[in-house]
Nucleic acid binder design. Sequence first.
DNA 1: ACTTCGAGCGAACGATCGTTAGGGAGCGGG
DNA 2: CCCGCTCCCTAACGATCGTTCGCTCGAAGT
Lengths: 210, 210
Amino acid sequence: MEKVEPLAAGAPSVRVDQVLETATRLFTERGYDAASIRDLAAALAMRPSSLYHHFPGKQHILFAICFGLQSDFNAAVMPLFHQGKGPVETIQDVLGEHIRFSLARRGEVLVNTRERRSLPPELRAQVNRLRRAYRDALVAVIEQGRRQGLFSVEDPKLAAMAVFDMVNGMFQWFQARDQADVERVAKTYVDAAVALLRGWGRRYTLTNAR
Amino acid sequence: MEKVEPLAAGAPSVRVDQVLETATRLFTERGYDAASIRDLAAALAMRPSSLYHHFPGKQHILFAICFGLQSDFNAAVMPLFHQGKGPVETIQDVLGEHIRFSLARRGEVLVNTRERRSLPPELRAQVNRLRRAYRDALVAVIEQGRRQGLFSVEDPKLAAMAVFDMVNGMFQWFQARDQADVERVAKTYVDAAVALLRGWGRRYTLTNAR
DNA sequence: ACTTCGAGCGAACGATCGTTAGGGAGCGGG
DNA sequence: CCCGCTCCCTAACGATCGTTCGCTCGAAGT
């Protein structure tokens, strides 16, 4: 017989997931500092001390949310960079998945962007490493597209940050009602990013196709 | 003889400005919740209780920073909407001043974006009213440009938010070293916004002028 | 000279914070 | 049958939070 709960490395453990779910909701609603351990315990119908059997402290709950989300994000998006497609198609694939993934897990995304700063330096650095890996890959594709004359940006890093900020800013105020909503806004923002990368700093003549 | 300090309405009062300056720095460094009244008083070489002779409470210090900044912002930017220029030029003027102003007062901008959520609803609403006035004016100009065939965006509100988020996201990570730095990034982002509004959802042929 | 008043002080208030110590109920394995 | 383990409990710890009270001091006004 195998053990009921291996608990080896990052084993899920239903109760832990419940804690993380509720914590994500509270952290988005009130912010990390304003949401107390007692609030979290009350929302889970347990005592504050019981939480310390699952997590060594409050900061580690925040870390589990941020690092877990960012790991899943990279696992979902990073493979799309190496599919042998051209820069434009790669950007479209990556950014589309970026948006779809982030809207599907919007709560964790908001916690990761708004409350990550409350992590102690060494934990925050672990999350930032993953974020930087994604951003660097995005910069590399833009740089590749620039060399091929597809994009007209001067500074690929700046362009990547601009696209990044535009998308991440959207998650703050946009909430999808259904999957069609997700697909619509994904397509719209992917188009916006491509338009930005193509037209930045270029003089062009427009043709009203379609 | 006139009184040394009229203290009429929103009179500056050197000491109050010192408090706001130091509070802005502490709030940006540690966040509103993590920066305590005692920290602020210590940085000002005074006792916590003395702060309550200038402000009725901690939240009002945050409000003074956010509302003061947003008022000055609107006073600097809103007039540029009514100068009789075309949509493209108006967008360029407004966004350029938006960036220049925000970089000149970056600390307050960061507090206003990151910590405004910690304000009680009625105070936060006062700041949001000013922000909405600016955003609505931006939407109106984009809508005007769309009717004139200058912009190709489908939803002016969405386009305004995208440009808005792109610029505001930049303030989070970009720090200007000198005025030339400011002018360079202002020009770059204004070009990016125009490229976005022109090329969004359009098929076009490019010409590599200059 | 007497009053007024802004400004700051020391001390303390009650509340709430994250965290810990220690114990008990349930349960599967030897 | 009892050991050990997981999970949760009650109770409380020390620290820190925003805020208040009553006082002093010096400059300005009359």
